[in-house]
């Protein structure tokens, strides 16, 4: 009796839904991190003057604060077969008839990924900006004196130096992706259609809790706890390791300053 629930939950469904959750997270996250890196490096670059920089920062952060369920509801109405997006596409002559975005797995997943991207890329950009600004500008100046192009300095200086924060962003985004619920729930009305291809783990947990099937819900919760726990440990080790790295870095910098001053005398 005791372990039946655990075995029952760990069936084919579990792995399908985990795969769904992971896929949905991945197609939203990859563009998000690429664009965020690009934007962060542009915003921080002293040689590149962006007109209206504050305006762009305000605008890209805006979707992060929007209610995910209302955002999903909005996309549901906009992208429905009789909605504005289809209407625009048809009147512009790009397509002959309305596209059923939510009738195909690809369409639904892309919509969910688009929403996740819009909601989070602003946040990631601001955090990566803060990370890049933490790199001493002397390094960039020295590099540009040596004839480094912006692209070279990005790949060989910026990226390696912000690697800890990139990893931190990756893991926290993964933990967040594991919890993906609001957007697919509202978009597909809790079904994960078509054919459960957008059904995430937390949607399953929610349905079990409402059934109410507390036995299986409990088992699923324990599995999620274990997975989250492992990811959490990684983050924890990283954050603590980072503090030690930062302190070591500060000590080394201080030593260098002393040596320079000593040399000048």
């Amino acid at each position: 009796m005791g372990f039946d629930n655990y075995i029952n939950v760990m069936g084919k469904d579990f792995f399908t839904y985990m795969g769904n959750t992971f896929t949905l997270w991945m197609i939203g996250f990859v563009p998000q991190i690429v664009i965020a890196l690009l934007l962060a490096s542009w915003f921080v670059d002293a040689r590149l003057k962006i007109h209206g920089e504050q305006f762009f920062k305000v605008v890209i952060y805006l979707p992060n604060l929007i209610m995910a369920s209302a955002f999903a509801m909005l996309f549901f109405t906009l992208f429905s077969t009789s909605g504005p997006v289809n209407s625009i596409l048809t009147s512009l002559g790009i397509v002959n008839g309305p596209i059923d975005f939510m009738g195909t797995p690809v369409g639904t997943r892309l919509l969910i990924a688009l929403m996740n991207f819009l909601m989070w890329f602003g946040n990631t950009t601001i955090m990566l900006m803060a990370a890049i600004m933490g790199i001493s500008p002397d390094i960039f100046e020295a590099a540009s004196i040596d004839g480094c192009t912006p692209r070279q300095s990005f790949f060989h200086i910026t990226l390696p130096l912000i690697r800890p924060i990139l990893t931190y962003t990756l893991i926290t985004s993964l933990i967040g992706g594991l919890q993906m619920f609001d957007v697919p729930q509202i978009l597909t009305n809790g079904q994960g259609n078509p054919n459960r291809t957008s059904y995430t783990l937390i949607m399953w947990l929610n349905n079990l809790l409402r059934a109410p099937d507390y036995g299986r819900a409990g088992a699923l919760s324990v599995y999620l706890f274990i997975v989250s726990g492992i990811l959490c440990l990684v983050v924890y080790k990283m954050v603590n390791g980072q503090d030690n790295d930062a302190k070591a870095e500060q000590k080394a910098a201080k030593k260098r300053m002393k040596a320079m001053k000593g040399g000048k005398q």
Partner: peptide, 26 residues
Amino acid sequence: IVPIIIAYLFLSKFIIAGVALGGVKE
């Protein structure tokens, strides 16, 4: 949605500064 958007437009400087502050610490 709109009440949050309006509040955000007034407070955006604080909010973005707050995210950056949290980011640097982490």
